[in-house]
Amino acid sequence: MDRDRDWEWDPTLFAGTAAHYSVGRMAYPPALADALRDALSLDGTGRLLDVGCGPGSLTLLLAPLYAAAVGVDPDPDMLVEARRAAGSLPVQWRRLRAEELPADLGRFRTVVFAQSFHWMDQPLVAERVRAMLDADGAWVHVSATTHRGVGIDDATLPHPQPPWEHIDQLVQDYLGPVRRAGRGSLPHGTRGGEDDVMRAAGYRGPQRLVVPRGEVLERTTDDVVAAVLSLSSSAAHLFADRFDDFVHDLRLLLGAGPFSERARDVAVAIWRP
C-alpha cells in the first residue's frame, strides 16, 4: 500500500495540553455510548481499543460496554490524566504511537478513533488496525468539536457566548495567521480524505450516525482559557516566553464571565473489515 509521504510524526503536537482537557473540553454525551451500543449490538463482551485516547475521555465512557478496554496515546501527560480519571476502572493504558500497532495488544471487537486519525499515518494505521479487528468487529471514527459550542446567534442563551472570533484573532496576533501545529503549520487545516483511505485499506461502509446534543452549558473564564490551551494550535509551548502575556491578554478579553454555549452534535462513522 502506498504511504502518505507527507506525513511525519511530531511529538510536540499536544505537548502541555493534557492538564487543560478536563477543564476546557466538553464531555462526550452518554447518548454517544447508547448509540454505539445499539449500532454495534454491544453486550458487555469483547474488547475495546481507543487509539489516540488522550486523557481517556471517550475510553472511559465506552469501557463499561466491553469486557476489557485499552487506551493508547503517545503523550505521557495524556496517560497520566487518563489514569487519574479512570480511578478503579480496569482499563489498560499504553504509551504507543498508532503506527506502532499491533504492539502485541491482541484482537478487538471495536477500535475507536476520536478526533485523532487525521494526526496519523492514515494508510499504515488503517492497514494495521484492520488485522486487529475481530471478524465481526468495527472501526469507529468519532468526529466532534468539544472545545467550543455552536457558533450561531442564540438569544435564548442565559449568558453571552465566548467571543471565539476575537479569541482566534488574539491567537493569530501572537502566533501568526497560519494555524500552528507542533513544530509545523497547517495552512489548509487538518487532512481529510479518510473515506478514501479506509476503502483503499479494504474496509466496508461507512454506516453514519449523528448523536444530537444541543444542551446549553455554562462556562467560566477558566473553562474557556483551558479550552484554548487544550488545542494543538494554541498549546502553551508555542508562545515560548510570551505565554504569560498571552494568557493575561486572553483573560482581559474574556472578562469575568460566565458564558453559555450550546453543545455541538457528534458524528460517527462505522467501518467494517
Rank of each mutant, 00 (worst) to 15 (best):
S260I: 07
S230W: 06
V23Q: 13
A98F: 02
R272G: 06
P162F: 14
Q172A: 13
E8D: 03
L175V: 15
Y28T: 02
L209E: 06
R148F: 15
E218G: 12
G16M: 13
W271N: 01
A263K: 03
G257D: 14
D134Q: 00
T221Y: 05
T145H: 14
S230C: 12
P102F: 03
R37S: 13
G87C: 08
D134L: 01
D168F: 10
L79P: 09
Q161H: 03
E127V: 00
L105C: 01
D121W: 03
P177H: 08
D2P: 12
D75Q: 04
S57V: 15
R130E: 00
W93E: 02
D196L: 15
L65V: 02
R130F: 00
L13K: 04
S88V: 13
T221D: 12
D168I: 13
M132V: 03
M78T: 00
P206N: 09
G149D: 00
A263M: 09
A267S: 14
P158Y: 10
R97E: 11
S233C: 11
P177K: 02
L252F: 02
D10V: 04
D265K: 15
A126K: 00
V125D: 04
I152M: 06
W139Q: 05
A86C: 00
M120P: 00
R219P: 08
R148E: 15
D168H: 07
R97N: 06
Q92Y: 09
R97K: 06
D244T: 04
E261F: 00
R5M: 11
D153A: 13
S233G: 13
S143A: 14
G214T: 10
D136S: 09
G193K: 05
W164T: 12
W271F: 00
M26G: 09
L58Q: 07
L124V: 12
V216L: 03
R130Y: 04
L61S: 08
V91W: 05
L89P: 03
R179D: 10
R5T: 11
G149W: 00
Y28C: 10
A267F: 13
W93T: 01
W93R: 04
W139I: 01
L32T: 04
A35M: 14
A39I: 05
L36I: 05
P55W: 12
A68H: 15
D196H: 15
V111F: 06
V228Q: 09
L65P: 03
G151V: 15
Y203S: 01
G137S: 03
I270C: 08
R47P: 03
A227F: 06
S185C: 10
Y203K: 02
Y203R: 08
L62Q: 03
T45H: 03
A226I: 15
P187W: 10
V51P: 02
H166R: 15
G71P: 11
G192P: 04
V150T: 14
V197A: 12
S57N: 15
P11I: 03
S22D: 11
F117M: 04
L217P: 02
V268Q: 12
S22F: 13
G192D: 07
P123N: 04
P258N: 12
L253Y: 02
